[in-house]
Simulated assay, not measured.
Amino acid sequence: MTGYSKSLLDSLCLKIKDYPRFSLTEIEKFCWMAAHEHKHGVLPSEYDIREIDEDLYLQLLQKFKAE
């Protein structure tokens, strides 16, 4: 698993909390959206199947679940 800087993870977590209709009950979806936006520069469209950085996604999820 690739380690990401604490500052990157913190800034992405703040960005996730600012997403429209953010909800902790759907945190997997929002972490996926942030990982997608970080890799591709845009939020995913409805049926976007481009790959994301799975390590980043898992680290974001872990950070939210630790809070």
Rank of each mutant, 00 (worst) to 15 (best):
V42K: 06
H40L: 02
L14I: 11
Y19F: 15
I16M: 10
C31S: 15
S11E: 11
G41H: 07
L58I: 00
H36F: 12
H40V: 00
L24V: 01
K39A: 01
L43A: 10
S23A: 11
Y47W: 14
S23P: 03
I49H: 12
E54W: 13
D53P: 02
L60A: 14
K15W: 09
F22I: 01
S45R: 08
M33V: 00
S11K: 08
M33A: 14
D48L: 14
D10G: 00
Y19M: 14
D18L: 09
C31G: 14
Y19Q: 13
L43R: 12
E54C: 14
K17G: 05
W32R: 09
R50Q: 15
P44C: 05
K39C: 01
P44E: 05
K29C: 04
W32A: 12
L12G: 14
E46V: 07
A34I: 00
L58Q: 10
H36G: 01
I27D: 07
Y57M: 08
Q59H: 13
Y19A: 12
P20V: 01
I16F: 09
E54Q: 15
L14Y: 12
D48M: 13
I16H: 07
L60Q: 13
H36R: 05
L56R: 13
R21M: 08
C13S: 15
A35H: 06
E26G: 08
Y57R: 10
D48N: 14
H40M: 02
W32F: 12
K29V: 06
D10N: 05
K15S: 11
F30L: 02
Q59C: 07
A34K: 02
P20T: 01
D10Q: 05
L58W: 03
S23F: 07
E46Q: 13
A35D: 06
Y57E: 10
A35L: 09
K39F: 01
H40E: 01
M33F: 13
K17R: 11
S23W: 03
L24K: 05
P44Y: 06
W32L: 10
L24P: 02
P20G: 02
P20M: 04
K29M: 07
L56W: 11
S11M: 10
R50V: 00
L56Y: 12
E51G: 10
E46G: 11
K29S: 07
T25D: 11
K15P: 00
V42C: 04
H36V: 00
R50K: 15
Y19R: 14
H40C: 01
Q59I: 00
M33K: 14
F30T: 00
V42D: 06
I27A: 07
S45F: 08
V42S: 05
D48T: 00
Q59K: 13
L60S: 13
A34M: 06
L60K: 12
L58S: 04
Y47H: 13
S45V: 07
E37G: 04
C13T: 15
H36Q: 04
F22V: 01
H36M: 09
L60Y: 14
P20L: 05
P20Y: 07
D18I: 00
T25F: 10
S23T: 09
D48C: 15
D48R: 15
P20D: 10
L60M: 13
D18Y: 03
